[in-house]
Design a protein around this nucleic acid. Structure first.
Length: 263
DNA sequence: ATGCCAATGCTACATTGA
């Protein structure tokens, strides 16, 4: 089974690309971020017509997450626990049933945190701590669990074409990377790094300054796997070609293949 | 040091993103 994550930067602007990509790559479960769409306007019918169940959690203008699944949803939960005052639509957890049991998946849109000198950065760090608390709790279930999304974290210098350009950025600051490491250290496996040590693998290229043409990318979209999911990891990939299409998202899909039979 | 580009909401330009 293939599980993918993709920050689409507006579901409405990217609907044609999304449906084409679903047909081409046949993922079983997809976590989307930055849908930028209120729930009543979500293009549910078009996605259902492509063969997917869909759960979404959006808001006006910004943020917004969704999960698409070829499997039926047993359970859908919106919002990351730990702060009732946080009204950003950045987290959606779904439990799906397969012939080999349940899989728990969360679509994550972790706060950017820039500029780092403002209240945006402590919000990011607190959000990461809430995510770690959630992950620690879920890991006790000993289920296949996939936390997939736009983490807004460059884990390592080899994950940026020009790491020097990011040293003061909220995506690469030591506190950011430490908290990402702490999350991994709970017992999660970062799927792409579990399958390759290659440098030069990116999931985002800025629209500005010819970043795509110069391949000045960063790798910030990740899939974190519980031990029960990591044990079944067989392959990962980054659908880089999607960045070269007309009117692309600035992010591309990242996916992991798990040895769990499709229906 | 700043704008570069793209999207939203709105219909001028501010805000957000990374």
């Amino acid at each position: 089974m293939r599980i993918a994550t993709w920050n689409v930067n507006s579901i409405k602007q990217r609907l044609d690309h999304l449906v084409t990509w679903l047909r081409e790559t046949q993922p079983d479960i997809v976590c989307l971020q930055e849908t930028k769409c209120q729930d009543e306007a979500f293009p549910r019918l078009e996605i259902e017509a492509a063969g997917y169940n869909v759960a979404f959690h959006g808001q006006k203008t910004f943020n917004g997450v969704a999960v698409l699944s070829r499997y039926p949803f047993d359970q859908v939960t919106m919002g990351l626990p730990g702060d009732d005052t946080d009204d950003h639509a950045r987290f959606l957890e779904a439990v799906v049933s397969t012939s080999e049991g349940v899989i728990r998946v969360a679509s994550i849109y972790l706060p950017n945190g820039n500029p780092a000198g403002t209240e945006k950065y402590p919000y990011k760090l607190r959000w990461m701590e809430r995510l770690a608390s959630y992950a620690a709790e879920r890991l006790t279930l000993e289920e296949p669990l996939v936390l997939a999304g736009d983490y807004n974290v460059i884990p390592d210098a080899r994950d940026a074409a020009n790491p020097e350009a990011w040293v003061d950025d909220a995506l690469f600051l030591p506190d950011t990377r430490e908290r990402f490491r702490a999350l991994i250290d709970l017992g999660l496996t970062e799927a792409v790094r579990a399958t390759t040590d290659e440098a030069g693998l990116y999931s985002f290229w800025d629209y500005q300054a010819g970043a795509w043409q110069k391949n000045k990318g960063i790798r910030i979209d990740h899939l974190l796997l519980s031990p029960q999911a990591a044990d079944r990891l067989t392959a990962t990939g980054i659908d880089k070609h999607m960045r070269g299409r007309e009117k692309p998202s600035d992010h591309v899909p990242v996916w992991a293949e798990l040895a769990i039979a499709a229906r």
